[in-house]
Computed example of a mutant assay.
Amino acid sequence: MNGDHSDDNLIIVRAFGVPEATGAAMIGLDGTGGRWQADVPGGSREVTVAWPIEIAERRDIRRAAVELYRAACRELGVEPRAEEQHPTHLAGQHGQHAHHGEQGNPHGASHLHGASRPHGAHGTDARETAGFARELREATWGDHGDSEGADFMADIMRGRGTRTDYAQLVVQHWFMYEALERASALLAADPLLAAVHPAELIRRDALISDLEALIGADWRDAIEAVPATTAYAARIDELAEQGWIAGILAHHYTRYLGDLSGGQAIARRVSGQFGGEGVSFYDFSTLGDLGGFKDMYRRVLDAFGATLDADERARMLDEVRAAYRFNTEVFVDLGRARALA
């Protein structure tokens, strides 16, 4: 919910417990409800909201979240996004090749200037057509809760993580983005995809700055990837070696759109807790309007998807799901490492 549906988080939180919230991120869920961290003037609050329907199996979570969003819109007098007004369209299964309503996450900027007007980039709005960008978001909706519910990230979002915890997350980003940005050179060289990987998006210098601030000048000698990060980077390198553009784009989409969306909530949380240190990674101010960039990204995804046959589209959707699993496994490994420290 923290990417494509970051706007939905705020609507839900404002409707069901924290009307003064200025931002919100989902930090966990179970069979009874979801948990959100709400940004409020002067701090933050955690809020739990019960699902409006019974959860019998994992696929019910998506329908429950949609129903909760629609109920929140009614409570606030907000018009739901166009595709969320038809529950029969939204109740589709998240099968391997399913096409159904819509995330929101792990991918969108905040879509609210106020509680009454949803708008924005990666989150769905009335302008979004039934293109490939929307298909990616719909097919991966159920994966977001798994990733964002990992205890390690939940602690960071609750303000319970330590400076060392956050530093270890940045370390993993270094290894991930070394591989991702090598592979993304293939996107930059493709006339159709070059726009989604401008120089301003590259995180290498920002990560170096953050690691120097968090660990010290000798950070290169002090860092180590957890096993899941090593596997994640190896997968991206494998895709680059194969020259599979759609696979590289799947990981590019998952990581960068998350950074531009839910990542901004992480930056606010960490910056407030640790005095603004070590968050250059999340600073995309040189891109200009982030909403505009994400709108452009979605248009490129739609155009790219139109060049793929059904099998290749399904294969790319599977790779996006794999990217979410890799991210979840990284969080789990970080939690294990912390427990053993």
Rank of each mutant, 00 (worst) to 15 (best):
A126S: 12
I208R: 07
P191G: 08
R235V: 08
L317P: 12
R336E: 04
N105M: 06
R62M: 08
H251L: 04
R321I: 01
L90G: 10
Q85G: 09
A185D: 05
H111S: 13
L334M: 00
D8I: 14
E224D: 15
N2E: 06
A206S: 15
E20T: 08
D318Q: 11
D289L: 09
V171I: 10
D311P: 02
R59T: 09
V13H: 00
E102Q: 13
L169P: 08
I208Y: 03
G104R: 06
D218C: 13
A15D: 03
A133E: 07
E312F: 03
G34Y: 01
A306Q: 12
I223Q: 01
R160V: 05
T140M: 07
S280Y: 10
G275L: 14
L287F: 09
A109V: 14
D8V: 10
D309A: 12
R81Q: 12
T48G: 13
I266W: 06
D295G: 09
R268H: 05
A231V: 11
G33T: 00
A133L: 04
F326E: 10
H94V: 08
A25T: 10
E241H: 11
E135R: 15
H173V: 03
L112D: 00
L186M: 15
D60Y: 12
E241N: 13
E181Y: 01
H94K: 02
S280T: 04
G243N: 09
R338E: 02
I248K: 01
K294V: 10
L214K: 07
R315W: 05
S110F: 11
R203I: 01
A265Y: 10
R220L: 09
G272N: 12
V196A: 14
M153G: 05
P52R: 08
R235M: 04
R269S: 09
G17E: 03
D283A: 01
M176I: 14
I61S: 02
H86K: 12
A115C: 01
T328N: 13
D8C: 13
Y232P: 03
A185F: 04
D151N: 10
V78L: 14
R134L: 14
W36H: 07
A21N: 00
A337S: 07
S285E: 00
A121Q: 14
Y282P: 00
A323T: 01
G95E: 06
Y69N: 07
D318P: 04
S6V: 12
A71R: 14
R269W: 02
R74H: 11
A183N: 02
R268P: 00
Y297S: 08
G17S: 09
I202G: 02
I202Q: 09
A64M: 08
M157E: 15
P19E: 03
K294C: 11
G104V: 08
E128M: 12
G278F: 13
L308G: 06
Y177E: 09
I236S: 00
A139D: 15
F293L: 07
G272M: 06
D7N: 10
A306V: 01
G247C: 02
E57I: 05
T88K: 13
F304E: 02
F326G: 01
G272Y: 11
G216V: 13
I55R: 10
V226M: 01
D295Y: 14
I208D: 05
D259P: 00
Q273T: 05
T88P: 04
S116D: 15
L207P: 00
F331M: 12
H252R: 04
I215G: 02
E224N: 13
L193Q: 00
A341T: 06
M153F: 12
R63V: 11
R127G: 15
L317R: 15
A50L: 03
L136Y: 05
F152T: 08
